[in-house]
């Protein structure tokens, strides 16, 4: 069956982005836009929150904005 989405919001995908570079919540949301994942806005927020709670990334402030990041 063909997939309706070309991007999947998964823990692995979020981990890969946060290892590559620090990102704000908005940066992450841009990577998992609802039109790409097929999820609703509410689902996106809920799933991303659960993933970030599990990953428990480091945080740092860059240009006065809070960024998450992970080290390998």
């Amino acid at each position: 069956t063909p997939s309706s989405s070309d991007v999947q919001l998964t823990e692995d995908a979020v981990r890969r982005y946060l290892i590559r570079k620090p990102m704000t919540t908005k940066d992450l949301l841009k990577k998992f836009q609802t039109k790409r994942t097929g999820l609703s806005s509410e689902q996106t927020v809920n799933v991303l929150a659960q993933i970030l709670k599990r990953l428990n990334p480091e945080r740092k402030s860059i240009n006065e904005k809070m960024h998450f990041y992970l080290t390998e």
Binding site: T24, T25, K26, L29, K30, S41, T44, V45, N46, L48, A49, L52, K53, R59
Partner: peptide, 20 residues
């Protein structure tokens, strides 16, 4: 739209602030 993105970011940060 960018305002929807702002709302989603705010909702996500609110969820995370409860936790972190």
């Amino acid at each position: 739209s960018s305002s929807e993105a702002d709302e989603m970011a705010a909702a996500l940060e609110a969820e995370l602030n409860d936790f972190m």
